[in-house]
Design a protein around this nucleic acid. Structure first.
Lengths: 134, 134
DNA sequence: GTCTATGCAAAGAGTTTGCAGATGT
DNA sequence: ACATCTGCAAACTCTTTGCATAGAC
């Protein structure tokens, strides 16, 4: 791994990721950071998001629809994708459960399990309420 | 949902997906089906893969690196992505476990959980052996 | 005959990359 | 001073779409 140098843009991205509860796409991060750094380019955002993900300071979430999303909260937790509006929410599960699943999987796999990510699909509360208004 | 008409191309894709243990990308499916239908186009492959996924006859797997992969085995099971070679393998877990996880998640989420997919990351057996040769 | 599926090619979305100049150490 | 990072734009990958024709019912 190469030597990293401080950059204000990267610091701002990391800061933003660690304070938002949304799970922004690269483009959303770009639009947000642009308020502070009007000249920042999308390429820089992508480069830094990938750097942060590689360093373990962010998580990249791949969903079947649309681009990847990023999460600055790296404690073990799960995500729910709303089938109706596409929003990604956090789902805190028993930390022990997460470790259990890794062990369980390791027993069934001819190799080594390092980690896992689980994506739940469902309907978020907002969309459930809307359903009754239509 | 619209009316579906039979097509040999779609049948061939479904057949291929249900017999392979790889988890091919759309392009891999395309190359394979091309042997039987030399004129098939990539667009047709994508259209049919999405149809199959919508009908529940295939599963679309999104990984952070590269394009989506497809799996014709729709019984509940998990996947392992090798961190070294990128290969996707099946992981059969206790079916009850899978239902348990949905229920557990539903209790922790303000909305409704419908399903989930879990992607394990690890090192497959082939790559583990290679490690000792290098 | 009508409606859907196909092949083709072009367009679209998301992401990466090469380069010259700015910035951090 | 040197290596890294940035902004810009072009390139690239993956996927979708519009249209005329072929195929299913």
């Amino acid at each position: 791994m190469a030597n990293l140098k401080y950059s204000r843009q990267r610091a701002a991205i990391k800061e933003y990721l660690s304070h938002t509860l949304e799970h922004p796409t690269a483009d959303t991060v770009y639009l947000h950071i642009k308020e502070e750094f009007p000249n920042i380019s999308l390429g820089t955002v992508y480069r830094n998001l990938n750097l942060l993900a590689d360093m373990g300071d962010a998580i990249k979430i791949s969903t079947p629809d649309g681009g990847d999303r990023f999460d600055g909260h790296v404690n073990p937790h799960y995500h729910v994708v709303c089938r109706s509006c596409g929003k990604v929410s956090d789902l805190e599960l028993d930390e022990q459960h997460i470790q259990e699943v890794n062990k369980l999987a390791d027993r069934c796999f001819e190799g080594t399990i390092l980690s896992h990510t689980t994506l739940f699909y469902g309907i978020c509360r907002e969309c459930e309420s809307k359903k009754w208004k239509n």
